[in-house]
């Protein structure tokens, strides 16, 4: 019994050391500009010019920032967002606004992009361009930098959640899990999420991942570590049950 116990411990420690090799502080970039209003700019869509407030007055927005010439993160980002949105089975109303941050993009180019992702027929998705991208970038804390050698923008894969009052309530940086999107959708619909983790890479044994679809926290690997003492004790007790007794001693 003791052998299996030490084996468990060795396994736990070993898997920790092997699997975790990044250096870890927390990133605060997703916190920037939260609870600030988004710039109420005019955007050009397939149905003509509208302002952002026309959109968020009706329903909250998930804003995805891309450009058509992008050879980097934009395509995986769009696929990631599309896939994650498709997986949501929530009743909340919201629109996904895919906005170009490249002033040389045209609306027809954006619509072609929509077609490529089979999103041109989807009423939930809006593809648009704008003349006032600097104002928008400043309001959401997005800083693309033009690199003339590669003819590309250096930029983050940014998704911004905007609530019905036009306030930025949550941002997601990088390609993210479905649960992050559910959290985002809850927040843009003004549901209070009591606490949230900051992005970090090297934490194998976190206890919970918040699952807003059910309003509960999903148990993740760390929770198993928490249960380990009880499980091991049950094993120990099972081992104890095999002890030979001498009742008449």
């Amino acid at each position: 019994m003791r052998k299996s116990f030490f084996f468990f411990i060795a396994l736990v420690v070993f898997s920790n050391v092997v699997l975790c090799n990044t250096n870890g502080l927390y990133s605060f970039s997703e916190e920037e500009k939260l609870f600030k209003p988004i710039a109420n700019i005019e955007i050009a869509t397939a149905e003509g010019e509208i302002s952002l407030s026309d959109l968020y007055d009706k329903s909250p927005i998930i804003l995805v920032l891309v450009f058509t010439r992008c050879t980097g993160i934009c395509s995986p980002l769009l696929s990631n967002v599309k896939e994650n949105i498709r997986q949501q089975q929530t009743n909340e109303k919201y629109k996904v606004l895919v906005l170009s941050f490249d002033s040389s993009d045209s609306i027809s180019g954006m619509l072609q992009l929509a077609k490529r992702y089979n999103l041109d027929e989807d009423k939930q998705w809006i593809f648009a361009t704008t003349d006032r991208i600097e104002a928008l970038n400043a309001s959401v804390g997005f800083n693309p930098v033009w690199d003339s050698t590669s003819q590309q923008f250096d930029h983050e894969a940014l998704v911004v959640g905007v609530n019905g009052n036009g306030y930025i309530v949550k941002k997601l940086n990088g390609l993210r899990a479905s649960s992050d999107f559910r959290s985002l959708i809850k927040e843009i619909n003004s549901e209070f999420v009591l606490s949230y983790p900051l992005p970090r890479k090297n934490m194998l044994f976190s206890c919970f991942t918040y699952d807003p679809a059910t309003g509960k926290k999903k148990i993740s690997v760390g929770m198993l570590v928490m249960l380990l003492p009880v499980v091991l004790t049950l094993l120990v007790v099972a081992g104890l049950a095999t002890i030979k007794r001498k009742p008449n001693e």
């Binding site: 411990i9 920790n16 050391v17 975790c20 990044t22 934490m203 194998l204």
Partner: peptide, 25 residues
């Protein structure tokens, strides 16, 4: 057993010299 796991995790972090960090929660 909980203490041994806890201390093993903390000692693992200590000897990994920053390669492994624990979840504070």
């Amino acid at each position: 057993i909980a203490a041994i796991i806890l201390l093993a995790l903390l000692l693992a972090e200590y000897y990994s010299a920053g390669k492994f960090v624990n979840d504070p929660l």
